[in-house]
């Protein structure tokens, strides 16, 4: 339990650092910015209490907000994503349900499940994020395009990361 806690705390810090130092420096023509830190919310174990998911997601979003100087934008999008996580999981649940002792990871539920799961939640997060940041429907389609392209890039990065990092 304690070991597990330490592992997720480590993931939390590493993802924030990676987001700030690496992924924030990636942007193609001001359109596509990957936000990979949401991987943390995706990977929390099934048995995590829902309240812990919400609070830790809020801390994650707030940390990113603090470093990027965007009050409330990332925290509200990440909390929304954390709130929808149980619903999305139920939606894609395998026929026999999620077994105890399993984790929401690629190697346990297969690529198809992981892609569906990742893309849905990342899409939700990115659309909330980009529209909250612009805070207007004025340039609706340019924001739409930014959110969509960024979702594709973030999802790709997240899915690829699974092949390298969490292979055990």
């Amino acid at each position: 339990m304690i070991r597990e806690l330490g592992k997720y705390l480590f993931l939390f810090i590493v993802l924030i650092a990676a987001q700030l130092l690496v992924f924030n420096n990636i942007d193609f023509s001001g359109y596509i910015n990957p936000y990979v830190y949401v991987l943390f919310v995706l990977l929390l174990p099934f048995k995590t209490p829902k309240l812990v998911i919400l609070v830790s997601s809020f801390m994650l979003g707030l940390s990113i907000d603090l470093f990027m100087g965007t009050p409330g934008v990332h925290s509200s999008a990440t909390v929304l994503m954390a709130f929808s996580r149980p619903g999305i999981m139920a939606m894609y649940s395998p026929r026999e349900g999620y077994q105890t002792g399993t984790y929401p990871r690629l190697e346990q539920f297969g690529i198809e499940w992981f892609i569906k799961y990742t893309v849905t939640l990342v899409l939700l997060h990115h659309f909330a994020l980009f529209y909250l940041e612009v805070f207007t429907f004025h340039h609706f389609f340019s924001t739409f395009l930014r959110a969509l392209l960024s979702t594709i890039l973030s999802s790709l990065l997240i899915i690829f990361s699974q092949f390298f990092i969490f292979r055990r």
């Binding site: 809020f58 907000d65 409330g72 909390v79 709130f83």
Partner: peptide
């Protein structure tokens, strides 16, 4: 709890 945390975040944003 979601509504509380989300409204706090949005409060940060709107303010």
């Amino acid at each position: 709890l979601f509504l509380i945390i989300e409204s706090f975040s949005l409060f940060l944003l709107f303010n």
